[in-house]
């Protein structure tokens, strides 16, 4: 927007002067989780390519994937994936003009936060016992 002459015209205060409400934080988290979950996907894709390549390539990828840092990346990505999943469902509600009031938006935000944590723990439980 550098080519627009602003002169001395006053501009209204921008985002930085506001304390972000929970609905705004959970909204921006949608894009952050959308990008972050790719880390776990890349790890899994590398592991799949290694499995197709041969035993030595697989041994390396499998060691990384199942190291504590590999599991940490996977767990974080699974949470990001579930969060993004629930945020996508919230967009369907928004498109249907539902959950549009302030109290509902607040409630839906907490559903996203605790729902994503719950689904991540459920995934972890299924992985450990399965």
């Amino acid at each position: 927007m550098g080519d627009i002459p602003r002169g001395n015209r006053p501009l209204s205060p921008h985002l930085s002067v506001y304390k972000l409400p929970i609905a705004a934080i959970t909204s921006i988290m949608t894009r952050i989780t959308g990008q972050a979950l790719v880390a776990g996907l890349l790890l899994v894709v590398w592991w799949l390519v290694a499995a197709a390549t041969g035993p030595r390539a697989f041994a390396t990828a499998d060691w990384v994937l199942r190291s504590w840092i590999g599991y940490l990346v996977l767990l974080g990505s699974v949470w990001a994936l579930w969060y993004h999943f629930l945020a996508g469902i919230r967009h369907f509600f928004y498109d249907a003009r539902l959950l549009m009031t302030k109290p509902q938006a607040k409630q839906a935000s907490w559903v996203l936060i605790w729902g994503s944590v719950g689904l991540t723990l459920l995934t972890l439980l299924l992985f450990v016992i399965g």
């Binding site: 996907l41 890349l42 894709v45 590398w46 799949l48 390519v49 499995a51 197709a52 390549t53």
Partner: peptide
Amino acid sequence: AVIAAVAYALVRMALS
């Protein structure tokens, strides 16, 4: 690139 990598991996595992 990610799609191509996955396609390669799956096809190779399926065929060999």
